[in-house]
Amino acid sequence: MATLGELERTVMDMLWETGEAVTANMLRDKLAQSPEGPQAHKELAVTTVLTVLSRLEKKGLVDRERDTRPHRYQAVTSREDHTAELMHQVLGSAPDREAVLARFLGTVSDGEAATLRKLLGRN
């Protein structure tokens, strides 16, 4: 049985792949057919899929269309946008960033990079 974290990941991957709003039932069927884990996902109940979806909704990763029945779900934004958001937090100049996460190396200026390239050449 896959953990919730892994399921969230699989569900998001499917939503990103599909690119359109789908119901929990459709997702469950897709999960059951998915090549990477027919065993892991075959027995999945729709309620489990709904739990995963509402967790993702709470995290602001999934939008729910409430005017249809059953509700349809889709990814808030693309995988690439999320990667960009992540990298912006890591590499951008947000205040408190160093307190949020500690990077191996701070922002490097051009001059600094040139100095170090020279040093690297000598090594």
């Binding site: 951008g92 100049s93 960033r97 701070g106 922002t107 051009d110 170090l116």
Partner: peptide
């Protein structure tokens, strides 16, 4: 992100 330098020098130690 390389261009954003100087002012963005957020206190992390300069690599050099």
């Amino acid at each position: 992100y390389r261009a954003a330098d100087g002012a963005a020098g957020d206190g992390a130690m300069a690599p050099s």
